[in-house]
Design a protein around this nucleic acid. Structure first.
Length: 573
DNA sequence: GCCGTTTTCGGCCCGACTGTTTTCAGTCG
């Protein structure tokens, strides 16, 4: 069984935690963490790279030593260094460090003085009031750990972007109304448009006299004030979402926005560039000695560092800084580039609007075309279309297109890929359509090899044009089914199949890494909403955000093309 | 342990807040 990148990253992260508890060289620890991040964020699997004979030390943050350790893990599934270390420092200490407020130093004290080596041990020590007696601890720290242990046990998951927006937008309006407040921006992973966010980082510029912090902690939705200083405050809202507010002077707005947008790894890398130029970068600006030389806007800041503009979606330290230095950043796809939607349902199956309503809504968005992709017969719960009903729908769309002006409705289907990889309707029926979107909707539990072969076989059919929601994951609800995505992307390229980036905020499937992999292999992407009603067409922007995170340009996305060009891309020989 | 506009050794991002302190350590982002 091939070792996954996530498992290798996990081993390095655990190792870093244990080294930290032991008080090892902090830079060595950081090296392990950086390597873990590189591995986790790589679209190619380490096991496969090794199988191809690639030298892993070509990867950033991976040197000779770690390349050898990765090879060991891939070969044996273990790392002797971690085994040796965990015989002296229990692995579970790494788990304890995941509790907010517990870092290596406190965990070390807890372990050495109270023999705390598990969450259960910690809970017992807290209950007995032992923790407050430790040096450097006290009743407040004990209380803090107690609350956060409870929260950790409940394990709140990250928020979907769309849900975070529902919380963030009214909060931003509230903050804008406070006297003296000038700019209010939600930064952090929200601004980078990650598919999920852990908390909200809100940046405010305000006059010195503004009561913004005082008013912030009194916001109606605040359940708990976690911290409150003069420039920074953290609260937990009733919804459970945590919000960090930072107040900076206007002259620092760009530097602060840059800093609080992150990612952390990106910031560290940019600060290193500043340091290399004998400059200091912090959230207040870019400084030469005591003199602020930039910081009012992000553009000014980047210019002073001789970097091209880096869109927030790319700020992950995944090669964007090097590209910005050389002026080689991609011109990312935008919502304005999108000319149509290639995955929409109608009332004929589980949608709730008519084909005509969908078409008019698409036209209103400025689209040139929209396709109707109702389910095929296998999806009985959605009253999937059989041959007869599909052909009737085809004729209905022909008539509609005769009437409609300024929008073309494309005849399509969301066709089930059956368990054996065959398609749910016969070829001669599919030939009546402009194209098909094919998808797996059942038997998510097949072993990886079988599931992969099922999809590969479906793609062998020349009527299979677009593979919908390729991994089947539902954010926070369902993991991707087991597939060899790299093989599927490769096969899509060879067969002229297009991969869907499903823009539905519950799916966002493909993820950013997979988009990058598709781009590298020259496979085209369709960004589609999977709309089940006219109002769902608005989800397109989430798909575009995700595509941008995956470095996609308009040329990589088929539904930025004019209809004539789109038809050429959809034609398989 | 990695890395090179400081280039094969000697660096490695930087500031705010809290609690336990009496000048600072720990943690976080």
């Amino acid at each position: 069984m091939a070792v996954h990148n996530a498992e290798i990253a996990e081993i390095f992260e655990t190792l870093a935690d244990l080294l930290a508890v032991r008080g090892d060289n902090p830079f060595r620890i950081r090296a392990y963490r950086n390597a873990a991040r590189t591995i986790r964020g790589n679209s190619r699997s380490m096991a496969e790279l090794l199988a191809e004979g690639r030298d892993l030390s070509e990867l950033r943050n991976i040197g000779k030593d770690l390349a050898a350790k990765i090879a060991t893990i891939v070969d044996t599934g273990r790392l002797p260094l971690l085994d040796e270390l965990s015989s002296r420092t229990p692995k579970a200490l790494s788990e304890l460090m995941k509790i907010e407020g517990l870092g290596p130093k406190r965990v070390k004290v807890l372990y050495e003085k109270l023999r705390v080596r598990s969450l259960a041990d910690l809970e017992r020590a807290l209950r007995r009031g032992k923790v407050r007696e430790l040096p450097g601890f006290g009743p407040k720290t004990e209380q803090m750990i107690s609350e956060r242990l409870e929260r950790f046990a409940a394990r709140e998951q990250r928020w979907k972007l769309i849900d975070a927006e529902d919380v963030a937008e009214p909060l931003v309006r509230y903050l804008r109304d406070i006297s003296g407040v000038k700019e209010v921006t939600v930064a952090g992973s929200y601004r980078r448009r990650k598919e999920t966010v852990g908390d909200l980082d809100v940046l405010v510029t305000a006059a010195g006299s503004s009561p913004v912090i005082e008013r912030f902690v009194k916001y109606d939705e605040v359940a708990e004030v976690v911290s409150q200083g003069s420039t920074r405050s953290t609260v937990r809202l009733r919804s459970g979402l945590q919000v960090d507010l930072r107040v900076v002077p206007q002259v620092s707005y760009g530097a602060a926005l840059y800093y609080f947008t992150g990612s952390k790894a990106h910031n560290i890398a940019v600060r290193r560039i500043a340091a290399a130029r004998k400059l200091k970068l912090n959230e207040y600006g870019l400084f030469r000695g005591d003199e602020r030389i930039a910081g009012k806007t992000e553009r000014e800041l980047l210019k002073a560092l001789r970097l091209h503009w880096i869109p927030p979606e790319l700020r992950e330290d995944h090669g964007e800084i090097e590209a910005a230095r050389r002026g080689r950043l991609p011109g990312l796809v935008t919502l304005d580039d999108i000319r149509g939607d290639l995955h929409c349902h109608s009332r004929a199956t589980d949608g709730h609007d008519t084909i005509e309503q969908m078409a008019r809504a698409a036209k209103e968005r400025g689209y040139d075309y929209v396709s109707i992709n109702d389910h095929s017969r296998h999806v009985t719960v959605a009253h999937g279309l059989d041959r007869k009903r599909l052909l009737a729908q085809v004729r209905q769309i022909d008539r509609l297109n005769g009437r409609l002006r300024g929008i073309v409705v494309l005849k399509s289907i969301e066709l089930d890929i059956l368990e054996d990889g065959s398609l749910d309707l016969p070829d001669e029926v599919l030939a009546e359509l402009d194209f098909t979107v094919c998808a797996v909707h059942y038997r998510f539990d097949l072993p990886k090899k079988k599931q992969t072969e099922r999809i590969l076989r479906a793609m062998d059919n020349r009527h299979c044009n677009i593979l919908a929601h390729p991994t089947g994951r539902l954010i926070n609800e369902r993991d991707p089914y087991a597939i060899d995505l790299e093989r599927i992307v490769q096969a899509a390229g060879e067969r002229g199949c297009i991969l869907e980036l499903n823009a539905h905020p519950d799916r966002l499937d493909l993820d950013a890494e997979a988009c990058q992999m598709a781009k590298e292999k020259g496979v085209k992407i369709a960004i589609s909403t999977d709309a089940h009603g006219a109002e769902d067409l608005r989800f397109m922007r989430f798909g575009v955000d995700q595509a941008r995170r995956g470095w996609l340009e308009a040329g990589d996305v088929v539904n930025t093309r004019k209809l004539r060009d789109l038809r050429k891309l959809l034609a398989r020989t």
